[in-house]
Design a protein around this nucleic acid. Sequence first.
RNA 1: GGCGCUAUCGUCUAGGGGUUAGGACGGAAGAUUCUCAAUCUUCAAACCCGGGUUCGAUUCCCGGUAGCGCUACCA
Length: 481
Amino acid sequence: MSSNPSSSASPRLRFAPSPTGYLHVGGARTALFNWLFARHYGGTLILRIEDTDFERSTAEMVDGILDGLRWLGIDWDEGPHFQSQRMDLYRESAQKLVEDGHAYYCFCTKEELEQRRAAAQAKGGDPQYDKKCRNIAAEEAQARRDAGEACAIRFAVPDAGSTFFDDAVFGRVEFSNSEIEDFVLLRSDGGPTYHLSVVVDDLDMRMTHVVRGADHLSNTPKQVMLYRALGVQPPLFAHVPLILGPDKTRLSKRHGATSVTAYKDEGIVPGAFRNFLALLGWSPPDSTREMMDDRALIDLFDLSAIQKSNAIFDRGKLDWFNSEYIRAYPAVQLLPLIEEEWKKVGLIPFQTNREAMESTVDLVKPRARNLKDFATLFRAYFSDEYEVDSTAVEKFLKDEAVRQMLIELASRYEKEDVFSEGGTEKVVRDFAAEKSVKAGALINGARVALTGQGVAPSLFAVMANLGQERTVARLKRAKEL
RNA sequence: GGCGCUAUCGUCUAGGGGUUAGGACGGAAGAUUCUCAAUCUUCAAACCCGGGUUCGAUUCCCGGUAGCGCUACCA
């Protein structure tokens, strides 16, 4: 008998994705919660790939899942283990269950089952398996197997009584055993079903806690029965509510991106995504606190603070987190991510000096909402090939006189010996006073000429950043805009 | 259909037998100025419905409704 899981000194948890698709946001959050819990208690996180469905599982998906986890900053201590390499263990366990009288051979074919199920339902009866094979004598079963008849192994669910467990988030959940059919443990092809493989593996890998999606809540009593039949105490379960789309249905492609890789590709920064995900269904003791790095998340995380109801994925809030994180990320950290975005659009920066690029990043990052902004909105800060926003031209440069003045202004800057933020401003203001025009008109016009945008940081900071030569050249081009 | 779970602003949530029901995103308005997607200020916005229990229920209990999940030789 194992000891009470909740009193274990060092918790052991696992994340067990099925590689039949990329890492989706629901799975990512489950992984995150497991990780936060394990790190909070100094436990062990095991990664297990549940690839018993050979048809749908691919190695490519496994790589995608691992990439997604790494991107989110989730690391693991053991694994990845592959269920496909542990098939013997499942067969032996099923065999043992038969020997101990907890399971039996079932010779019903899939067709027969479907037929009888349909017939039962037509009569308004119970669609559960009718236990036809439950009482076949051991010798007969052996004989039929020897004769090569295909068979599955089913668990013999007790006819009476009920099964319950105490979930860390939902509390006590109880099911009447009569609601649970004699489920299959081992398929006729020799492969285990989910219920068998999870239990056998969680047992073999000495899991103390099972944190997974709430879609498994109704399946849990089956697994609890299996643990009991195997003579052990089940681990502590914690079921995490599901993530829904804006229409309150299960999140799917219809709602946009569902894989974490897609968010990476969309210019979301990993810290933002992790922070956002952590707050979907969980909140720290001080719920007014929202910005949390991994350290804070780990310190504050607690299973009991997980929400019981499903949460809707709010893209707007994610974007907000993204802008906050981009602003907070140091330029050194941001630059490599930005360079990936440049690569995607073929932008080759005119500047190669890292420090200079970093200071440019710092200049514009407060206005960024997405990493892509550095390759689109902010192109002019890094490249001489950028588009000019026509509405900005319309708004600030439609006056021919302004254009002329900007060209004149360029000549003045050309003659400056020092080109500083304060100095450039003085030149414009003096020039405006001289011409009896509002400085704002010139500043706004110059902004469009320099950045192609009507929106930008302080003009003089931009000039200082662009440098004298580039500032002059772009101002001179004002008349062509 | 059966079984299970859930229910606080549009969304994420805090709270809890007596509160002006708090915060955040988003929305609206205003301020600022050199533009704004930045910043600051302000505003609107919620306890699903019906019964109990109670001096008092949004909070506890029951029922309803709704949503979600499970009901496979998928995981």
